[in-house]
Design a protein around this nucleic acid. Structure first.
Lengths: 143, 143
DNA sequence: CCTGCTAATTGTATAATACAACTAAATAGG
DNA sequence: CCTATTTAGTTGTATTATACAATTAGCAGG
């Protein structure tokens, strides 16, 4: 693999973070906690999740998950169900309202992505999605 | 372009941010301000830059650039030269020490990238770099 | 029962960034 | 030339996302 490709990837990833951060900074008034979006998605995908499992999956500190989940619960997007087998633990499950919010919020994000990918070929979009997925997998499985 | 590709891109970008954030969070002891790395790179590329130009290029608030630049100057990585044509303005230029730090820091990042891309084909790496570049360009030019 | 480990919450701190306010220099227009 | 407006940059303050630290209580195993 050529050094040029690596350099390009390293630089462009750095720039990407910066650009996405500037986008999110300019949207500080959103209804759904920006940071909690991925958490809500994960609860939806996993169906029923405890704090620790979510933290492990998202590479977040449990205190962060605890706070984000509490916020989501307060908004009615998830419900907190005691774990029958461990008096210390809880499972978070999606509420109907949470599912709706997730769908709506995701749609707004998809609209933005659509605008950005305007002019891209189907092949490019497919490739980009797959390579991102592959890269993310590499990060999660490293070490 | 298929809806599936868009959904994959949206989700994987969200996950990518999370993962890269967790990586950077676990490296809080680095010598070069993590956030200022891109600024240092930009000064190096542009050769001689004012605060406003850098802020525009990096989509950062000028106060943030001002602070990052001041930090870099304090560390001797850049020098602050008065703009002969505007008594209010300055240009930031790289120092030799700054160039060295940039090269070293970038190499460390490249090492990380190399590990992550272990097993990727040349084609995949090249594609990934180009698609990231293209995507970043779309973000910068939007609106 | 006791000790060590674990799940989650709460306290506190950190880093990156933006918005707000300010100072001073430059510019535009009469 | 003068005045009002704009602009470059710095400093003050606030916000957000996150991690590290401390605490409480439940669980597991001897």
């Amino acid at each position: 693999m050529s050094e040029d490709s690596k350099k390009m990837i390293e630089l462009e990833l750095t720039v990407l973070i910066r650009l996405l951060t500037s986008i999110t900074s300019s949207k500080r008034k959103e209804s759904l906690d920006r940071a909690a979006y991925l958490l809500l998605h994960q609860v939806s995908v996993q169906g029923s999740s405890g704090v620790k499992a979510l933290a492990d999956e998202l590479k977040l500190d449990i205190s962060t998950v605890s706070r984000q989940a509490a916020s989501l619960e307060h908004k009615g997007y998830v419900e907190k169900v005691p774990d029958p087998q461990d008096g210390r633990a809880f499972f978070y499950k999606m509420t109907e309202l949470g599912e709706q919010e997730l769908v709506q919020h995701r749609q707004e994000r998809l609209n933005g992505i659509t605008n950005l990918l305007n002019g891209w070929s189907d092949e490019e979009c497919r490739e980009f999605g797959q390579l991102l997925t592959k890269f993310n997998h590499a990060i999660k499985e490293r070490k």
